[in-house]
Design a protein around this nucleic acid. Structure first.
Lengths: 206, 206
DNA sequence: CAAAACTAACCGACCGGTCTATTAAAAGGA
DNA sequence: TCCTTTTAATAGACCGGTCGGTTAGTTTTG
């Protein structure tokens, strides 16, 4: 009995693995090529999973993308929280750390890829209300995390208080996303450096 | 003779018109649906132009997009120059005017569409080196226009001089592009309002 | 054995791009 | 001036390939 249980478990796990693997490979490919440019067959070939299986696990490409967004967000939010809530740094230092990591990652990738959420937001907001809604949930979640960090900094007098934390978080994310876009097109990391130098080290600092 | 000349002229003009019409319709559709999601047939149907004509005027979809970018940029740069070089306003006021117009246009479009250059940059920078190069030329041109305006403001003491005009222009464009992206996904105009309120009215003002 | 999980083969639609044919305009010759 | 030749432009049928998605059937499981 224990044997069958184990087999069941491993089998179930394997099936789950296929599902997760589809999500993770799709995430990587969509990060590189966007939604429209990514074919389902391409994802399946990478994993040697047959076409029929895909539609066993997912209803449609659109729903698959929704699950990719959620899966990616799960990982990303965890990472983001550990940085912007890190009690061992001051709030402003946390923001700078996050910005720096974003900058270095983009630089390591030769100013390619960027952020899945940002890329899909730009590509799909006008094309799919389903994806737009999902992406807006993720964006709102991130805005909250940044706003909480900024508010903490404001209370400590480390960050300017002329504007609300929510507004500053908004601008912070806008500028960072835009800097990533510019860096990708110009193939130069300077937009990120400028963002860090001016926005963080100067403008929002109290 | 004059009659035939006129006919010739109008005919030639008509031919040119077909080309221009293809560029302008393609511009509109690509602004709404992006590059990958726009089919050539769709553009042709809108103008009732046969498929063969398209490949008479353009080598490929990619080259067609390059010409769309240039055509769009021609119009846009003219408009941009009249605003950011307008001697009847102070430099900072010009920037605010431009930002406000961008904000109002996006608002009128129910936070859709945005800017063709920004959209294509995000979608195509990693997919097509040809398009990326073309887009980077346009971005660089705009950066120069903004930088010139900002530099003027710095000399007048109206804009902070801790950072170079080029760096400020960089951040200005990053933040504006990012705010447009966020507004499209969140379907709220506030990111643009925040950009104007904080960035222009506060942060870069001396 | 019945039900659920899985999969290979297949579908019509559409993609960007090519083909050959036809028509209209420009250029050349006397 | 008229006729011929060449070239630009129009035209749509057609190409192989790929798209997202379906289905009929096999395999696995309880």
């Amino acid at each position: 009995m224990e044997l069958t249980k184990e087999l069941m478990a491993s089998k179930t796990a394997a099936k789950q693995d296929t599902r997760i693997a589809l999500l993770e490979v799709g995430m990587d490919i969509m990060l590189e090529k966007g939604y429209s440019n990514t074919g389902i067959q391409e994802i399946l070939s990478a994993l040697q999973v047959p076409k029929g299986s895909f539609y066993h696990y997912f209803d449609s490409k659109e729903n698959y993308a929704v699950e990719i967004i959620r899966h990616f967000d799960d990982c990303y939010t965890t990472m983001l929280k550990t940085i912007v809530s890190n009690p061992e740094m001051t709030p402003l230092k946390r923001l700078r750390t996050y910005a720096n990591e974003s900058r270095n990652k983009l630089n390591d990738q030769a100013c390619r890829k960027g952020c899945l959420i940002g890329n899909l937001s730009q590509e799909m907001s006008d094309q799919s209300e389903v994806l737009r809604t999902e992406l807006s949930i993720v964006l709102a979640k991130r805005l909250e995390l940044f706003a909480a960090c900024i508010e903490e900094g404001q209370k400590l007098g480390e960050i300017k208080s002329q504007h609300s934390a929510a507004e500053l978080a908004d601008l912070f994310m806008s500028a960072l996303s835009g800097a990533v876009m510019m860096a990708k097109t110009l193939k130069r990391i300077e937009p990120l450096d400028n963002f860090i130098n001016i926005m963080i080290d100067d403008l929002i600092k109290a």
